[in-house]
């Protein structure tokens, strides 16, 4: 499991790769939390394009970051979820809470950045 973070304007983009489960979430959460401590963004885009598996541990991680951003008035967006990841995201009902778009390019367009 990997995570790379970058800024697109005032939005933090976190690109996740690999599998999100109970074993991998703690390290990913720690790295993202550090980035959120370093600088409070206007919003967070979680790019799941290269996430190949996610279960409820991963869903808890997504919801936790959404709540974290919401506390500081920031928005969260999910981009690129597909296959099993998309199905689990939709089954959980989180789609009613966290907006999702098909691709990172769409997410960046929505927040006014470059693709």
């Amino acid at each position: 499991m990997g995570i790379t973070v970058s800024y697109q304007g005032s939005w933090l983009v976190a690109k996740l790769t690999g599998e999100l489960d109970v074993a991998t979430v703690p390290a990913v959460r720690a790295k993202l939390e550090q980035a959120l401590v370093d600088k409070i963004p206007a919003g967070l885009i979680l790019d799941l394009t290269d996430v190949t598996f996610m279960d409820s541990s991963g869903l808890g991680f997504l919801l936790g970051r959404y709540q974290r951003l919401a506390e500081s008035g920031g928005a969260t967006m999910i981009a690129g979820a597909q296959g099993q990841v998309r199905r689990v995201f939709e089954l959980s009902g989180l789609t009613k809470i966290i907006p999702q778009v098909q691709t990172l390019a769409e997410a960046l367009k929505a927040v006014g950045g470059e693709s």
Binding site: R29, D55, S56, S57, L59, G60, F61, L63, G64, V88, L91, S92
Partner: peptide, 15 residues
């Protein structure tokens, strides 16, 4: 309390 959603069994039932 650690960011667990409590939907594990519900997800199993759905799958």
């Amino acid at each position: 309390s650690q960011e667990r959603m409590g939907i594990g069994l519900s997800l199993i039932e759905s799958c």
